[in-house]
Structure formats: structure tokens, C-alpha cells
Computed example of a mutant assay.
Amino acid sequence: MPRPPRYDESALLDAAVRLAATGGPAAVTMSAVARESGAPNGSVYHRFPQRAALMAELWLRTVEEFQAASLPLFDAHPEPHVAAGAVARQVVAWCRAERERAVVLLYGVSAFGKAEWPEAYLRREQEGTRRVREAVAGLAERLGAATPLDIDRVSLAIAGLPLAIVRGHLHAGTPIPAHAEELAEQSATALLRGAGR
């Protein structure tokens, strides 16, 4: 039975996450990932033939983990306001549990060189974006959102507000308050109910 590789893709990406969280996307170089992971340079290039592929996989793995944690909640409760509150709460909970990955997401996809990604990565990113848009649209429809203002209000409630609660703490490296999840949930439902939805 062949021995598993000592420096697998996951370990290299974990190193890249640490570098990005502490030094920003510019700190993620092939040699820096090799040093951080303890892997030879050749192991990094074997799995990521160019930096664009490394940056794409770093972003996509992170955002897909975030989506996997939150997307199921869009339909998890028959009452759409409750579902919206659960999504908002989960955004904060994920950021608390995955601080370094959350910092990566705060930089945004363009900071990870999306313009230089190979086509396969671009298609993967587009598919993820489509899934999120469909989930938001479905929740908005259940809430009775009809206008662009209504739909933007839903996005603000389930993503914008929760991220606003944690952003400063993530950037400053300070603890996220214990009440942050509750605040995100209450803010989301209050915004949506206050609009008569």
C-alpha cells in the first residue's frame, strides 16, 4: 500500500491560510508556503504549478467551507424570518470558529488574483456564486421580497450585518464578543420584520 504524501494539498493550503491571515494575500508566495508548511519547494510546485493556482485554491477552499456551513440553513426552517436569523447567526459562528479563514474571506476574491486564475477555477467560483445567489433569491421570495431594495435588505440582514459585527474584531485580532451570534440573529430578524416582511 503506497504511503500517503507527507505534504498533502490540505497542509499546504492550511499554511497559505496562516500566511494570508497574518500578512495579507501578498504574503502567500510559493516559497513562503514551503517555509510555513516545512515542505520542499518542489512539493508546493507539484501540487500548484503556478501561484495563480495556489491563490485560486486557497480562496475557493475557504469560501466553499463557508458556504457549506451556511447554505443548508436557508431552507432549514419553514418560517423564513427564523431561517434568515439562523443564517446570520451562522456567519458569526463560522467566523468565530475559523478566524484565520474568516480573515481570508474579508480580503475579497480580487485580492487573490482572480484575473489570473486558470479557467477551471473561474468556473468553480462562478458555480459557487450561482448557488449563493439562488439561495438568497429563494429566501427573499419566501420573505415576500419583490423589489431590488427588498432583496438588498435580505442580503444585508443575512451577510452584511453579521460581517459588520465581526469585521473589526477580526482585523484587530480581538475576541469576538460572546453575544455576537445573538446580536446578528436579532439584527437580521428585526431588519426584515421592521420592513413589514
Rank of each mutant, 00 (worst) to 15 (best):
P78F: 13
R3Q: 15
A56Y: 02
R18D: 14
T147R: 12
R35F: 08
T174K: 08
T22D: 14
R131W: 13
A15C: 05
W117N: 01
I151P: 12
A39E: 05
A97Y: 01
A16G: 11
G196P: 13
L58C: 01
G128I: 01
R35L: 10
H46K: 06
R3V: 15
R130E: 15
A159Q: 13
E9H: 01
G85W: 07
L161G: 06
L183H: 08
I151N: 06
E9A: 03
V132I: 09
I151R: 11
M1I: 06
G138F: 09
G128D: 08
V63F: 00
S70R: 10
R101C: 01
A88S: 14
G42I: 07
S110V: 08
L170P: 06
H77K: 14
I165S: 08
R101Y: 01
A15L: 03
P175M: 04
V104G: 12
L170D: 07
Y107Q: 09
V109P: 09
L60Y: 00
A190M: 04
D14T: 03
R6G: 03
A137Y: 12
R131Q: 15
A68Q: 12
G38S: 09
F48D: 05
G144Y: 07
M1V: 10
R51Q: 14
A184M: 06
G23K: 04
I176K: 02
H77L: 15
A16E: 07
L54A: 02
R18N: 07
L149Y: 08
P78Y: 13
S187N: 10
G194P: 09
V103R: 03
F74N: 11
A180Q: 07
A84H: 10
E57P: 00
R89Q: 13
G144S: 09
T129Y: 11
E182A: 13
V82C: 14
G138T: 11
L149P: 09
L161T: 10
A172F: 04
V104I: 10
G113R: 02
E127T: 13
G128M: 02
E65Y: 00
A102V: 00
E134V: 10
A34L: 06
E65D: 15
P2W: 08
M30N: 07
A135I: 08
T22L: 09
